[in-house]
């Protein structure tokens, strides 16, 4: 799925990418893959998480202004969603899904 004008999509579109594994192309020659934790509605920046061994994870933040393309690769299963939403941030006060 190709997305032009990523910063212009808005919250209702961005939130549909949350808990999906995505591939993001940015700044001409960078390509990032990871589970999408959130999109900052102010800067349109994406927070991607890649799980490592022993409960560790690496976090990549791609600045919204540099985003060229966002592709959905797959949806997270329940376990991945739980891990994603609880792995390094304090417990959420509300769920993502309405």
């Amino acid at each position: 799925m190709m997305q032009c004008g990523w910063p212009l999509l808005g919250p209702l579109q961005w939130i549909r990418y949350v808990n999906r594994q995505v591939m993001v192309k940015a700044g001409n020659d960078e390509e990032h893959r990871g589970w999408l934790l959130t999109v900052d509605p102010v800067s349109a920046s994406l927070v991607l998480v890649t799980f490592r061994e022993e409960g560790r994870a690496s976090v990549q933040v791609v600045m919204g202004h540099a985003v060229e393309e966002v592709q959905v690769l797959q949806e997270a299963d329940e376990e991945t969603t739980r891990r994603l939403q609880t792995s390094f941030l304090p417990a959420r006060t509300c769920g993502l899904d309405p």
Binding site: G10, P11, L12, W14, I15, V18, L37, T38, V39, D40, P41, V42, S45, V47, V59, V61, L89, P90, R92, T93, C94, L96, P98
Partner: peptide, 15 residues
């Protein structure tokens, strides 16, 4: 839209 924006922003600020 406001709810989606809040959820996304809070999560980003925590990050």
């Amino acid at each position: 839209e406001q709810h989606a924006r809040s959820v996304l922003r809070e999560s980003f600020l925590r990050c």
